[in-house]
Each structure stands twice: as structure tokens, then as C-alpha cells.
Design a protein around this nucleic acid. Structure first.
Lengths: 273, 273
DNA sequence: GCATTTTTCCCAAAGAACGAGAATTTTGTT
DNA sequence: AACAAAATTCTCGTTCTTTGGGAAAAATGC
């Protein structure tokens, strides 16, 4: 672990549960002396990744918000999914939520969302929130399509979590459960995350051809009959294909020039030093 | 400049204009040899700050989106402004946009926004976008309240930009212009950023008492008579005070426990290693 | 104003980054 | 499946930086 890695690990202690840190507390948490922690804090602060809010209390910094905007506007997955998501939102029964998610570390994270209708469900899953790999349709369609090697490793590490999630009591059952999801090409969950909520998800491929993301249609339980459910599932699968296809276009160097940047001059902070 | 700083400077080349980088191109841009650039890329990638999208093409990573959500939910300024912004949105003439902005480096950046009405203007300024210090009401009410020393330094560095912006041909005029904004307690701009758009902004104080943020009401030109404009300005000033006051509450250690985190268990990626 | 906290500074020893090129892995193509 | 090209990691002596305990300084709070 290099010095840079150690300094960056400071960033990961800023969580939703503990979003404010003093240098002293962080030093103890990271197991480094105070003087070293101060050095790390100074570096991250000057990069804007963290920010000192009133003497000694540090929080996540403005650079994160700036970078997030750039990601929203230029991330290949997010941009490629833009239109397909809007189409799905309109084609699906109203009062729905569309979620675009991707593999991140050993979780699946929502990276974009759309909402249609006035009686919107309140979902715990939302943009930026990680979701365990074994829970929800959002995750399962990705998990099911991971390389065989990866799955073995995951099974070894998470045997009990997998059993709890009902994904099998041994490696054979686990593989069988995932094979079924893979074969179907989509997965429907009922209340796995929020009560009274149905999720329909399908896998999205990177230009390299491996599944790393998913697109999901979320509706309140009981809004669809079996037939509608089947139609909607096909809709979600089609949307997933559309996104995968659009992603291909981004593999080439400068296929997109992102110059929908109109407005007040080129995107430069002209006071930046 | 430490090694950590150098590695972090890699992050700042990912801009809206150039959001995709190869290691080679970045190495040249940063003026470091390829092997060093690979080291930096590896560190930032493993922290999730950047991500390799299809062989050799790196983009901003998912950790940014994750951190952005935490900021949205826990940043003192954003949280403190939540209710005041909603109140302002409802109290102001419909078809309005509310912008919460803060000083960042030598710019002012929008950190949160609200929209009311169907005929929403399309604004170039939005969450995450930096705005030059000398442009727009959003910036000017902050600029006007910066410490005297800071203003002198800024004037020396940006003499021509200041003249162009009509903020004075010499330091004396510059100070006079800002004094007037400070005295009024708010500022109204007409089409400084987007044509046909009026912005009304007032300054927000940190718990330490210095102005570092602003709250703005944005409406289409011509929707308000002089009298309404005056009333709205007072509304914005009141909102600014409310935010400043709410911010005080965050200065204390664990005044807020942020436990509106309901849903699927504690916020831990239970697969994280 | 003084006491407390936060932050920077100091410096010699220890350890990590550096960087050119080789080796390896991954990727794309016939 | 074999090959060419690109991307990435590895190697290793040299050089430069981080390290960390404590002192000093600056900022903060009362």
C-alpha cells in the first residue's frame, strides 16, 4: 500500500453514518499519528475532496460535487442510458421509477434514476447508494452474469450471506440459481429491498462484452397482472440492449465530443490558479 | 508539492471538456513519465475515483457518485438550506429556480438547486458548475463580503477581468462597487449569465461569521414589477439568514446524527473488503 | 485578555517514489 | 487459434520524500 493509497483511504471513512471527522479521530481510525493525518487532510483539502467546516470539523468537499456533475454529463454509461431510460419511463405503467446501476467494488451502485408519476414510492435505493450483491433484482442480474472464477471466489467469501439470501446452500445450488437468472435474461424481485415494491431488472454489457451494469423498472406491488409483468420484462430487456448498444459507440476515442456545454464560455474556471 | 498532491492533480484533468483520458495522454499533460502515471492511475482507480471504461480509456469513477450522495445528505450547508430553500421556492412567484452556492477555490459553485413550475428556464448554472467570481448575483454577493486583504489580492490578480465585468477601473472603484452590494445586503442581476434571466442573491455566513455562500432566486425577466422585486429581495435575504442560523446548529460536534438513513440495514457495504 | 484547541514546523532515520526498459498481460485482428 | 499491437505491471539501484514525536505557532473560544 503506497503513500497515495494511504492518504486516499482517508476519503473512505466519510460515510453516511459518520460524515464529519476531526483530524484526531481520523488519525486514530486510520492508525496513523496526528502529524501524518494532518498531512493527509491537507492534501485532500487542497484538492477540494474534503473541506473544513468550522474549525476542526471536516466534511466531504466541493470537488466531489463538481466531479459528480462532470460524471453526470459525460460518463459513458450514464450518457448512453439517457434516452433508453426516458423511453422506458414513458412506455412503462405510470408511477414508476427507473434505476441505472453498476458494479462497484463488491456491491452494485445506482448511478442514475428517473421518476414518473405523482404517487412515487419512496425507495431506499437511490443514486449513489451501494447495494449488496445478493439482494434485489438490480444486483442479481449482474451477479448472475459475472465470470465463473469470480463467482467461485465470491461464494467462498460469502457463503453464509448467500445462503441467507436464498441463493443456495452450496456452490452447486448457487451456480444453478444464477444460471436460471442468466437464462431468463431478466429477474423480478418482490419486496427484497422495500416492502410492497416490485423490481424488474436486466443486465447491461460493456463494450468488452461483460455484464457490469443493470437497468431496472420499479413499480408498486399489485399494479400489473401476470401478462403486463411479462410485457414489461421484455421492455426492460430491450432497454438493456439499447444501452449496451449505445455504449459501444463510446468505445471509440473521440466519438463523442461532449460539446453540449453551451452557455457562458468554455468550461474553464478562469480564475483557477 | 507532495507525492499525494501530485497524484491527486490527476483528478483535476478530468473536466467537462475532456472527461476521458488515456494513461499516455495524462502522463504528457502532467509532465510525468508513463510508469509514474500508471502508478497514479492505479491508486486513484483502486480508490474508485476514476474507472477504466474499456481498455485504456479512463473516466471519473463511481466513488465520486457515492460520495456525492453522502454530501447531498449530510453536508452542513446543504442540509441547513433544505427547508429554507423549499420555503423560498413556494413563497416566490412560480416558475422559479432556487440556487444554493458556495465559494470554492477562486470560483463560486452551485451545490444544490430547486425548481418550481412547468415553464422552467434552462440555466447554464447548475449543481456542480463553477462560476467566475465577478459574474452573476450568485457570485457578487459573496465576493462583496470577502475580507479586505483577500479583495486586494484578487484585484491585483484579476484587474482586467474586474474592469471587463464593470466592477471598477481601479482598486478604489472596485471597493466602492462591492461596498454598495454589501450595504444593500442583496444583489439583483439581469442576464449576466443567461439572457432573459433575473437573479436575486443574498449572502450566507458560516458559523465563524464569514460569508462563504449565497442563496439565489432566479426568475424569467419581466415576471416582476419593481414592487414585487423589492418584496422578493427581502424574501431572499430572510432565507439567507435562516440558512446562516441553521448552520450554527451544525457547528456543535454531534448535534445531528444523520440517522434518517432507514431502509436496508446500516449503511455498510457488507461485502466490502 | 488567557487557556485550549488546531495546525504547522522540525529533523534524522526509514522507507517509498522515481523512471527507463524489460517482461507480462490484455486486446484486437487475420 | 495464432499473431500483432497495445496496455499494464514489474524490476531495481538511486534519489527523494515521508515518517512521527515533540516543540512552536496560529487560530479559536471563553
Amino acid at each position: 500500500m503506497s503513500t497515495v493509497d494511504k492518504a486516499l483511504s482517508l476519503l473512505s471513512i466519510f460515510t453516511a453514518d459518520k460524515p464529519q471527522w476531526t483530524v484526531e479521530a481520523a488519525a486514530e481510525r486510520l492508525g496513523v499519528p496526528a502529524s501524518t493525518a494532518y498531512r493527509y487532510f491537507r492534501s485532500l483539502t487542497s484538492a477540494g475532496l474534503i473541506s473544513d467546516f468550522s474549525a476542526g470539523r471536516y466534511v466531504i468537499g466541493p470537488a466531489i460535487i463538481e466531479l459528480d456533475r462532470i460524471a453526470r454529463r459525460t460518463d459513458p454509461l450514464i450518457v448512453a442510458a439517457q434516452r433508453p431510460m426516458d423511453d422506458l419511463k414513458l412506455a412503462a405503467p405510470k408511477d414508476n421509477v427507473i434505476l441505472l446501476s453498476r458494479l462497484f467494488r463488491t456491491c452494485v451502485m445506482c448511478v442514475d434514476q428517473r421518476t414518473r408519476g405523482d404517487h412515487v414510492m419512496s425507495l431506499s435505493f437511490e443514486r449513489g447508494r451501494p447495494m449488496p450483491l445478493f439482494r434485489s433484482s438490480v444486483s442479481k442480474v449482474i451477479l448472475a452474469n459475472l465470470p465463473s472464477r469470480t463467482l467461485s471466489r465470491i461464494y467462498d467469501d460469502e457463503r453464509s450471506a448467500i445462503a441467507t439470501a436464498g441463493l443456495g446452500e452450496d456452490l452447486y445450488e448457487f451456480r444453478a440459481a444464477l444460471r436460471e437468472i442468466r437464462r431468463a435474461g431478466f429477474y423480478i424481485s418482490h419486496g427484497e429491498v422495500d416492502k410492497g415494491v416490485v423490481g424488474i431488472s436486466a443486465p447491461v454489457c460493456s463494450p468488452d462484452g461483460d455484464v457490469f451494469a443493470s437497468i431496472s423498472l420499479v413499480v408498486p406491488e399489485g399494479t400489473m397482472c401476470a401478462d403486463e409483468l411479462r410485457r414489461s420484462s421484455q421492455l426492460v430487456v430491450k432497454t438493456a440492449s439499447a444501452i449496451s448498444a449505445a455504449l459501444m459507440g463510446f468505445a471509440e476515442p473521440s466519438n463523442h465530443n461532449f460539446s453540449n456545454v453551451s452557455s457562458f464560455g468554455p468550461e474553464s474556471n478562469f480564475l483557477e490558479d
